[in-house]
Structures are given as C-alpha cells and as structure tokens.
Design a binder for these strands. Structure first.
Length: 284
DNA sequence: AAAGAGCTCAACCGCCCTAAG
DNA sequence: TCTTAGGGCGGTTGAGCTCTT
C-alpha cells in the first residue's frame, strides 16, 4: 500500500523547523532515494539533515529499509515464505529481524504484521494463547502440513503443465473446540492396496508429510481405524528425514476421555490426522 | 446504498545495546 | 568509568481499505 495518497497528519501552517511525522510524500521519497544513491546509507540523523528532510534519522532509516530499498519485495507472502515464518517462529519466537534474514526481500515489519494479522487471528478464534503448547501443536501439526500440501499441489500443477486454473483448497477452518474440518482435502497417496494392519508404525518422508494428515480420508468408517497420531521424528538408513506415525487403538478411542489435568493427549497428539476430532471430543 | 466492523500495513514509540569520545 | 549519539528491535497505533449486514 502506498502511503503517498494518504492524507497528511500535519497542517500546512506547521513550523518550518518542526520535524515532520506521518506518511511520506513522493517528494520526500525522492529526496531520500537520491541522497542514498549519491552518498550511501548510514548516519541517519546526518543524512536526514543533509538530504533536506525534516524527518528524524530513525524515520528515514525505517522508510528506506521497509519501503524504498530496491530489494524490498512487494506483494503477498508466498506459501513457502509463510511456511518458513511458522517454522522459524517456532524456533525463535518473536525474533522478527532474525526471521527476516531468512526471507530475502522481506522486512521484519512485514513478517511481524503477517504474524499478528494472520496467525494471532487464528489463536483468537480458538481462544488460546499463541505461546501455548496447544497452539504450537496446531501450527506444527496442521497449519504447516497444509502449507506443505499447497506447495506440493503447486509443484504438481507446474510439473503437469496444467492450463486449467484449479481453485486452491480452502483455508483450514478451526473451530472453538480445536477440531478441524478437513473436508475438501483429498490426498493422492496410494495406500488403498496396502494392508491397513501392517502400515503402522508408518514412516513418511518429511517432504510428503502433509499427505499423512489426510490418511483418515481413506478410513472414514473403518472400525479398525482410529486417529493417526504423529509419533516421532526419525532419520532413516538413507539419511532421509522421516516422520513416524502410529495408529491409536480404536477401542481406546471408544472409551476416550481426557482425565482432568492430563489433557496432553490432545495437546501432544494434535498433530494427528484430525480424524473425527469433533467426534472424539463429543465422546469425552 | 450506507453504515459499521474488521483487516492491513506503514509508521511511530520506547527500550536496549554498542561504540566513540 | 561515564556520557552520549546512533542504530536495531519488538510492540503498538491508526488511517485507509475491504467486507458484511
């Protein structure tokens, strides 16, 4: 969004010596760009004076780094970038500038805004704290796999040179109970011919991990099927990163409940297939 | 069509760290 | 060692835009 069209906060009768605030004008942008082109960046207070800008050095620095610098990317974050943000945030928390170092062309401000407007919004809907283990599990176990799947879908599309435009899958719908409606997501993993009793524990390459979240699509009514639970992370003999999944005993699911103070089953295993979570919760 | 709610994102604020004098 | 200026960083704000009713 260009700020050049925004209304000005300061009046035209303001003191000539007073520092300006608010949106930058095209003229100010031009002055800043031209000065930096000739003299380089740094010494921002001095730069502001010499460039003839009635702005603080901080304001100039921010305008340059977040908006005017040539390598600043504009436009929506890509799916890959979103995935990286979620991953890095899970490691480092609100270290926006550190996260931004791994997303060329993106600013810490932009990443921070993404987190606050998109990610925290989901946490508000779920009425849970973004710093809680529960929310982190949702990010790791559902949101990130969904983004991985989107990336896979995009790659498939480009690989097959499909010309027809396919509607991207809808965003996951979180409910207040923490359940997720997976309808509409159908995977292509060919496990139909496999022996269901023998596929668990199941090792899945990290790059196919998103697909495992939809196994339940194949077992919607099978009495021998329970929730597919994210079990572990492993490195196989070939050195590939693998995710290990296990199957919850369906009879245990029948009697499933969460003892008070021991809700960690749901929390730690939220990265499961989301198999009938609504139903599971109703059985509690 | 209008009004209100919700969302986005550029810009600012204040705290902190570091280096120079 | 102390002071000060410059700069970096995370948190917050609010104008303008879009969506919903």
């Amino acid at each position: 969004m260009s700020t050049n069209t925004k209304s000005f906060s300061s009046s035209s009768s303001e003191d000539e010596n007073e520092l300006r605030r608010g949106p930058w004008t095209l003229e100010e942008d031009t002055l800043l760009i031209q000065y930096i082109a000739r003299h380089g960046e740094g010494r921002w207070n001095l730069l502001a004076n010499r460039a003839g800008l009635r702005r603080t050095g901080k304001s100039c620095r921010l305008r340059w780094l977040n908006y005017l610098k040539p390598d600043v990317k504009r436009g929506n974050l890509t799916v890959e970038e979103q995935l990286l943000i979620l991953d890095l945030h899970s490691k480092w928390g609100n270290r926006w500038s550190k996260i931004a170092q791994y997303l060329p062309g993106r600013t810490d401000n932009e990443i921070k805004n993404y987190w606050r407007t998109r990610v925290q919004k989901q946490a508000r809907h779920l009425k849970i704290d973004t710093n809680s283990a529960e929310f982190k599990n949702i990010i790791r176990g559902f949101w990130m796999p969904r983004l991985l799947q989107k990336i896979g879908d995009q790659n498939q599309l480009s690989a097959s040179h499909q010309n027809s435009i396919t509607a991207s899958p809808p965003e996951p719908q979180f409910t207040e109970q923490g359940a997720v409606n997976m309808s509409g997501y159908v995977n292509n993993l060919d496990i139909e011919n496999q022996n269901k009793e023998c596929i668990f524990p199941l090792e899945v390459p990290m790059d196919q991990m998103s697909r495992t979240s939809q196994f339940s699509e194949y077992y919607p009514s099978s009495p021998s099927c329970g929730a597919i639970v994210h079990h572990d992370h492993n490195v196989n003999n070939s050195g590939h990163d693998m995710e290990v999944f296990n199957l919850v005993n369906p009879t245990a699911v029948d009697n499933f409940c969460v003892p008070e103070g021991e809700s960690n089953w749901l929390e730690t295993d939220f990265s499961c297939s989301m198999w009938n979570m609504d139903e599971l919760l109703q059985r509690c």
